[in-house]
């Protein structure tokens, strides 16, 4: 065997810097960064810009660590699903042990640094969030119950609470309203994805609602959760995080979201397959705009409040 032969084999498997970055789920991280930033800026305590930047950075790194540990644990099912089979571990670019080491190292680093840069409460909440996502959701619930998304979705809802804690060091009702918004938004968002990713979860044996209760039941669940979400989102408009701007944004988006959920509920698989799940895909895209616009409106209200405007008083 020649040296060139050995090097070629190793070269194909050698991970790039970008492969390690992909382990951190950058797209999920953008949601974490934005919602944590809103939590931090909506808090009634001014934060030094550098401390605020560090807080958001370490919350994002904590989210990334959760992503890496989730990819390490779920590498077997990621290799089966179309949506995930190009991830660094199933693609053979990063060794599972390396992904786990990166996840653990970043988790420890992010929690320690957040606690040092801001306060212990924020660090502890970040540690709990990582634990919740990796152990409660990934290791336990995801493969055990069709309610995996409902309970596990809480992990993605913690960032605004951590952002608020980083700024204030104390708890209040407002960050939990933001938490509730993401918590109620996650099931319809994810179930819409499950509907048009068709056989992915079936093949992987993950007990998604589409697999255990069927597609009509999933469509009904999307509608029920969307109604509950709309009530919560519009109701939040009259609380401390809301105001006229938020309420207008929320009314428009919830009307569109409810209309989308109704359309999904009325359809069956024959109709959905005929247009390649166009309604479900549109609903999924709208769900992304829905969350970003709601948190954007909360941010606008918080910024207006600094000028004596915003809110209801």
């Amino acid at each position: 065997m020649s040296d060139v032969g050995i090097n070629s084999t190793i070269g194909e498997q050698e991970a790039r810097f970008g492969d390690f970055f992909a382990l951190l789920k950058p797209r999920v991280m953008s949601l974490v960064v934005f919602t944590a930033l809103v939590g931090l800026l909506a808090a009634p305590v001014p934060v030094h810009p550098l401390i605020g930047f560090a807080a958001i950075l370490f919350i994002a790194i904590g989210g990334g660590a959760s992503g890496a540990l989730n990819m390490w644990w779920d590498a077997d099912i990621d290799a089966i699903m179309r949506r995930t089979r190009r991830r660094p571990i199933p693609a053979g670019k990063v060794a599972p042990a390396d992904a786990m080491a990166l996840g653990v190292a970043l988790a420890v680093l992010s929690v320690t640094m957040l606690a040092l840069a801001t306060n212990l409460a924020a660090g502890a909440m970040l540690a709990f969030t990582i634990f919740f996502y990796v152990v409660i959701y990934s290791m336990w619930l995801k493969r055990a119950t069709p309610q995996n998304i409902v309970i596990g979705g809480a992990a993605g809802a913690f960032p605004p609470v951590i952002g608020w804690l980083a700024a204030t060091g104390t708890m209040a009702v407002e960050p939990w309203l933001m938490f509730a918004l993401i918590f109620m938004w996650t099931p319809p968002h994810f179930w819409a994805l499950c509907l048009f990713m068709r056989s992915d979860y079936d093949d992987a044996g993950v007990p998604m609602l589409t697999v255990t209760h069927g597609r009509p039941a999933t469509r009904a669940h999307i509608l029920v959760y969307t109604v509950l979400l709309a009530a919560l989102a519009i109701g939040a408009g009259f609380t401390g995080i809301g105001g006229p701007v938020y309420l207008i944004v929320s009314l428009v988006l919830n009307a569109a979201f409810l209309a989308g959920a109704l359309r999904i509920w009325r359809r069956d698989e024959v109709l959905a397959e005929a247009d390649n799940y166009a309604v479900e895909k549109r609903f999924f895209r709208l769900s992304l705009l829905y969350l970003f616009a709601h948190f954007g409106a909360i941010l606008v209200e918080a910024l207006l409040r600094q000028w004596g405007l915003g809110g209801w008083g």
Partner: peptide, 30 residues
């Protein structure tokens, strides 16, 4: 190709570490 990948990875890690040191310094000052 192996060397190019390693160089890219090492440069990336070097930049991340340099940014981390700068951030810790800035935080200490604040």
């Amino acid at each position: 190709e192996l060397h190019r990948r390693r160089l890219g990875r090492n440069l990336g890690l070097g930049l991340v570490l340099a940014a981390f040191v700068a951030l810790v310094f800035g935080l200490s000052m604040v």
